[in-house]
């Protein structure tokens, strides 16, 4: 890390609203990498084109901004995920009810999994 890079980071820290990542991990959390990879894979399968994706993502971001999201980059992958959920529903791959059912099943799976053990989805997690 060079001295002027440090200075640059210092400066951007001082400026409210421009978060910097100091060349750290590209993804802040594993789920971001998964959300990213899912979109890339679905695109490769032809579910949507990149211009279509970019338009949907931009729309998601502007909705979030209108709803008060400061959009400082840290919520970016949430917008990405919301875009994914919307597009897969629009394309008929799944729907919001199914997404909600699976989300709850994962919640049950987490509840019954002792801390520190890998969480796996089992049929009984869907029982409610």
């Amino acid at each position: 890390m060079s001295a002027d890079r440090d200075a640059a980071l210092e400066a951007t820290r001082a400026l409210p609203g421009i978060p910097v990542d100091a060349d750290g991990p590209v993804f802040r959390e594993p789920w971001e990498a998964h959300a990213f990879a899912m979109a890339v894979t679905l695109h490769a399968r032809g579910l949507f084109s990149w211009p279509e994706w970019a338009a949907a993502l931009a729309e998601e971001i502007s909705h979030a901004q209108a709803a008060g999201d400061a959009d400082c980059g840290d919520t970016y992958y949430r917008h990405w995920l919301a875009t994914l959920e919307r597009l897969v529903a629009e394309k008929g791959v799944t729907n919001s009810a199914t997404l909600a059912r699976y989300r709850e099943a994962w919640d049950h799976a987490a509840d019954r999994t002792p801390h520190g053990k890998p969480i796996e989805l089992r049929p009984e997690d869907f029982a409610g």
Binding site: W31, A35, L84, L99, Y102, R103, W106, A110, D111, T113
Partner: peptide, 14 residues
């Protein structure tokens, strides 16, 4: 027990 964040749950569901 384990807990997953809301976002993590959504990603896993999808």
């Amino acid at each position: 027990h384990s807990e997953l964040s809301e976002t993590d749950l959504r990603v896993r569901a999808l």
